[in-house]
Amino acid sequence: MRYAPCVLILPMSDLITHIVANYNYWIYITLMMIGLYAIIAKNNLVKKIVGMNIFQTAIILFYISIGAKKGATIPIIEHAHGDHGAGSSAVHAIEYINPLPHVLMLTAIVVAVATLGVALALALKVYQQYNSLEEDEILDQIREK
């Protein structure tokens, strides 16, 4: 493939241009790791749920950036009013961005909302039971029983 080989064997100036060229992935990975850190390290259940949502957002941004094409427009075919494409000029794939990641992420966003709802419901149930959302306090109460 014509993509650049691995970062470590490149000289320094090439490394910097490579980072600049792929900066979008670095942003998503940073965002994703913020979410992962929140899921692992935070003590509060709601903060863990927020971390899960940050993680999902990073994945959504990653997919959307995969679908981008330079100089292309949104995947809605122009000058088409239900004439089945007859009479209009041929549609070229290079003029429109990739619609597939958008479709996948459209459903992923809604599933993210649904999982958020269920997660909040579970957190609410835990709070009703233990009067706390802090993980260590809940574990202490479980051990005492």
């Binding site: 993509y3 691995c6 060229a21 792929n22 900066y23 990975i29 950036s65 330079k70 100089g71």
Partner: peptide
């Protein structure tokens, strides 16, 4: 990410 295609 070094194996990934560049933006756009």
């Amino acid at each position: 990410t070094s194996d990934f295609p560049s933006w756009g």
